[in-house]
Design a protein around this nucleic acid. Sequence first.
RNA 1: GGCGCGGUAGCCAAGUGGUAAGGCGAAGGUCUGCAAAACCUUUAUUCACCGGUUCGAAUCCGGUCCGCGCCUCCA
Length: 468
Amino acid sequence: MALAFTNSLTRTKEPFVSIRPGEVGLYTCGPTVYNIAHIGNFRAYVFEDLLKRTLQYCGYRVRHVMNLTDVDDKTIRDSRAAGLSLDDFTQRFKEAFFADSKVLRIAPADVYPAATAHIPEMITLIQALIDKGIAYRADDGSVYFSIARWPNYGQLVHIEAEQMRPGTRVSHDEYAKESVADFALWKSWSEDDGDVAWDSPWGRGRPGWHIECSAMSARYLGPHFDIHCGGVDNMFPHHEDEIAQSEAANGCRFVNVWMHCAHLVVDGVKMSKSLGNFYTLRDVLQRGWSGREVRYVLLATHYRQSLNFSFRACEDARAALQRLDAFRERLQDAARLPDSDTAPAAAAAQAAEAGFRAALEDDLNISAALATLFDLVREGNRLLDAGTVAGAAAKAILGTLERLDSVLAVMAPDEDAGVPADIQALADARQAARKAKDFARADQLRDQLAAAGWVIEDTPKGPRVRRR
RNA sequence: GGCGCGGUAGCCAAGUGGUAAGGCGAAGGUCUGCAAAACCUUUAUUCACCGGUUCGAAUCCGGUCCGCGCCUCCA
């Protein structure tokens, strides 16, 4: 089975063939840095991370570009409200984004181009569209892309311009357009923009939203590249417009494969501040969930399926991960023993690896991939119980787990915050009581620990205290 | 009006023609001073509903019901 992805352009699953053998150019729409990204945003980034790691697992070298939208209506509006320069304002949210990405173990992109650092590229692109007669400068000084002059428009969302119903969000200041469906490439300066403006052949102003991705993807990946991702909500108009701009300006196909992930919902409904179900990663961490637990929740649902986030799902993830942890600990202990027969362990490990790879190659079927992982856990535990996994056999399974984790990135536990001194003192007192066979006293201390939110486990190496 | 997505066990979730993966939970067992943790076993005659095609359908076709998303700057 070879790699295959569902292409939003054709809406079918297609074999994946890279433009250059062994290499993939990947562009993923990044954050608009006007606030802290929420877990719905990170659902998309985790999906893209899974895609990238899968490509790498399958042997591709991936060149990954993720843009940072640091100039748009919202960044301008909110930076002015905060009394900060645009750069100072967006810088904080860029840093927050990188920090949160790291917590979620998202592998960094190769390049994070910022829109404000690529204005000349955008101007060049817009000029090319004007020169070709596809874009026009309106009376208000803005430049628009004319959909009437680009018959290929609509290939991604499969719509006809006539069928578009003017939405309620059409802004009043865009009356200068020839057609409601036309979209801005360059927006002339208005008072609301304050000091945010660049010079251009059409006067002072700032770029439209879509143009940055066309300009920056071409700069870092070329005019024609392999895969472009984002959330479904970006299909229209953002990606549709990108295609129009890029193909009209460059005269070649823009992207071979478009991949879009479905929305994250919370308890079955869209996340929104007014419903009180709006969470940033930080909100979730504050409730005691770790980065990898959240990553697992975001990862474990297939990307084209809407993901229902809930704290119940976090609990399930924690339990599943603890089971993986326990399995790896058992294997690490067994690896120090003299070698056993390696055949059964090797067979289980190979079966898991083959199944895992086949599942991910099939349009990132993460559920099937995780199923093969847990099949290996069960089979491995059985073999450990039977004493047929020791030494090299245990190391073989650990090696497989490590390779699977190069894609999943969920196996290494998060940093433990440690045990407070007073809690440890209670645990020590309980152990002393147990030694003295004063079990009533020991149980009473255990209850005290439980009331404080800690559980105690008596292992062969002594008692271990753990938060619950 | 247009374009889409989805309804599979208590919960989450694969499977798109060959007779229901996996995770969580629950129940039983092993271990333990008792627990906890861990491990093992069990846990859907059935895939929203009604017809149809087929030797055979959760999977294909027609219809019905229900939930959700997008239609100009929300991942």
